[in-house]
């Protein structure tokens, strides 16, 4: 299970000759280097308007869901903190962006950042609670918080529009130049840019010493405590960051669709984001986007073919992944690649 990096025999050439660095730092540097498949992944995402020009709306939804799943990946995949109510932050971000736009603050980028900050603030406040409980109580508390917010949104008709959703949201043209068009080109470009920015942030974070400490906590909390790592502070920090990122994803959904429905806070959304992440593979960053893509596309196809019963197959998929493929899609690929790799070089790095 240990996924801490092991130094592999072939050190990169530019390290020799440089001033001697401590081993963890060189490890982190090595790990944070961009690989060709990462560049390929983002190029593929950016070329969606050329490959699938008619499905850009779905593609934006995938990116938004992927960003949301990424925020959960930071919390769950790296921090090892389970949440059954992550939609709370997504929903707060979505409503914040909607209310801002509705009451005159139509500028999208600042609206997005403000909404993310608000969700992050809520995450920070809640983190004091979260670090105190674990196990089943943690599941119930995270679930409970999202239910409280969902109830508040349903009952607060005057502010949120209740079950009818928040309507009359008008978002200004992006950067004063691009307004949201019918084919979703602007929405796609905007979502891609925000998702990529969020990804860069997450990537930087997990390959920092703080990210390494998080993974240490996930693998063995007691040992990390024993070597003096401030577990509660780390947990609180990652919880805040994750909440802010989820809020940004929610705000992005609001701004690209110009509507907020009360289900942005629902249990269904919390469950779906967990499913996406597990399907793609937690603790790899890319698993979030791949899981979101597979989930949304499969759901699209199944729901079209079988509108009443499609979630049966979703449930089956989930059961099979949990029983037979814990690492998800990325985990499966990594295993296969690792086996292939170890044929070429002896003593490969797993």
């Amino acid at each position: 299970m240990v996924s801490l990096p092991v130094a592999s025999p072939q050190a990169s050439p530019q390290e020799s000759g440089a001033a001697p660095r401590s081993r963890p730092v060189t490890q982190l540097e090595r790990r944070s280097r961009w690989r060709w498949h990462e560049i390929l992944f983002w190029l593929a995402a950016a070329s969606c308007p050329l490959i699938v020009p008619d499905d850009l709306v779905l593609a934006s939804q995938v990116l938004i869901a992927g960003l949301f799943a990424l925020s959960l990946d930071l919390l769950l995949g790296y921090g090892g903190i389970v949440s059954l109510g992550h939609a709370a932050f997504f929903g707060v971000g979505a409503y914040a962006a909607g209310l801002l736009a509705r009451h005159g603050w139509g500028e999208p980028v600042s609206g997005l950042l403000l909404s993310g900050a608000l969700a992050g603030l809520l995450g920070f406040a809640l983190s004091f609670i979260i670090v105190r409980v674990r196990g089943i109580a943690l599941l119930m508390v995270t679930l409970g918080v999202s239910l409280v917010l969902h109830e508040a949104a349903v009952k607060g008709y005057a502010v949120t529009g209740g079950d009818d959703g928040l309507q009359g949201i008008a978002v200004d043209p992006l950067l004063g130049l691009f307004s949201m068009d019918m084919w979703g080109r602007t929405a796609f470009g905007y979502s891609l840019a925000v998702a990529f920015a969020g990804f860069l942030l997450a990537r930087r974070l997990v390959s920092s010493p703080f990210g390494l400490a998080l993974q240490g906590m996930r693998e063995n909390g007691r040992r990390m405590a024993a070597i003096g790592a401030p577990l509660r502070r780390h947990s609180a920090l990652i919880y805040t960051v994750s909440a802010a990122l989820a809020g940004v994803a929610g705000a992005l959904l609001t701004q690209t669709t110009e509507f907020v429905s009360v289900e942005v806070l629902g249990f269904q959304r919390s469950a779906e984001v967990l499913i996406m992440l597990i399907l793609g593979g937690a603790g790899h960053l890319y698993g979030a986007f791949i899981g979101a893509a597979v989930f949304m596309i499969v759901r699209d196809q199944l729901a079209a073919a079988n509108p009443e019963y499609w979630f049966f197959w979703l449930g089956l998929m989930l059961v099979l992944v949990v029983l037979f493929a814990r690492g998800g899609i990325i985990g499966g690929i990594a295993t296969v690649a690792g086996k292939l790799g170890s044929r070429f070089r002896k003593g490969g790095t797993r």
Binding site: I136, I275, I278, F312, L314, G315, L316, L318, V319, V321
Partner: peptide, 15 residues
């Protein structure tokens, strides 16, 4: 862990 149990049983609920 709880996570796997939760996911398995959510899958069962959907089914």
């Amino acid at each position: 862990g709880e996570l796997d149990q939760v996911l398995l049983t959510i899958g069962l609920v959907f089914m």
